[in-house]
Simulated scan of single mutants.
Amino acid sequence: MASKPFVSDIENIRKRAREHIDKGAITAGYNGDRETVIKLLNQALATEIVCVLRYKYHYYMAKGIHAKSVAAEFLEHANEEQQHADWIAERITQLDGEPNLSPEGLLTRSHSDYVEGEDLVDMLKEDLVAERIAIDSYREIVNYIGPSDPTTRRLMEEILAVEEEHAEDLATLLDNLGKKGEPAKPAKARPPAKKPGKG
């Protein structure tokens, strides 16, 4: 099978680059539906911000005998989700869009929910549910973009890979807590036992 030669009209590329310099990173070769991609990225941005907020809440509210190691995981995940949000916002601006950072409507734009949880196990479960939602929705974004916008697709694939790592970390922590006997709910105070013969 003969290899196909690479042919590029460099002169024409140079000419187009000068003619449309105001478009920044968007060149004539961009094949994506830019408006839809920006909308999807803003939804992913909202998802990441909600995840940051939920992980931060869980970090500060983690209590129990195993809270220290789990809280460290919450903080690590919060920092990684913030990095994702920054990458997504930057990509939106590269596509000549505006990152929607308004708190108004944040939860309606986000794919995942903000659920605080009542205790350490609840928190881990809610974070795992949110990661699983992000995994499926980001995979759909990657599939939608396909070859039309390789830069955005690679970005979302990279974020997707980290979300899968987060889900695995959380599932392992839940499994370990179950083995260590961490209560699923905080123990309720029992009424004092009555002394024999005291009615």
Rank of each mutant, 00 (worst) to 15 (best):
M1V: 01
M1D: 02
S3Y: 01
S8N: 09
D9R: 00
E11Y: 01
N12I: 08
N12P: 00
R14V: 06
R16S: 08
R16F: 01
R16E: 10
R16P: 00
E19M: 12
D22R: 12
G24E: 07
T27K: 12
A28Y: 07
A28N: 10
G29L: 08
N31L: 15
R34T: 04
E35W: 00
E35I: 04
L41N: 06
Q43G: 11
L45F: 11
A46H: 09
E48G: 02
V52W: 02
R54F: 00
Y55V: 01
K56M: 14
Y60F: 15
A67G: 00
K68H: 12
S69C: 03
A71S: 15
A72F: 07
E73L: 15
E76R: 15
E80K: 04
E80C: 02
E81A: 13
A85R: 06
D86K: 01
A89Y: 04
R91P: 09
L95F: 05
D96Y: 06
G97I: 03
E98S: 09
N100G: 02
N100T: 07
L101W: 07
S102A: 09
P103W: 02
E104M: 09
T108K: 15
R109D: 09
R109P: 10
S110F: 02
S110G: 03
S110I: 02
S112Q: 10
S112V: 14
S112P: 00
E116H: 03
D127M: 02
V129N: 13
A130N: 15
A134W: 00
I135H: 05
D136K: 14
S137M: 14
Y138W: 08
E140R: 12
E140Q: 14
V142T: 09
V142G: 06
Y144H: 12
I145S: 07
G146P: 04
S148E: 11
R153M: 12
L155Y: 03
E157W: 03
E157G: 02
L160N: 10
A161S: 14
A161N: 13
A161M: 07
V162D: 15
V162G: 04
V162R: 14
A167I: 04
A167F: 05
E168L: 06
L170R: 11
L170P: 06
A171I: 00
L173I: 05
L174I: 09
D175A: 13
D175C: 05
K185P: 00
K185A: 11
K185N: 08
P186S: 02
A187R: 13
R190W: 02
R190Q: 15
P191N: 09
P192E: 03
A193N: 06
K195E: 15
P196D: 11
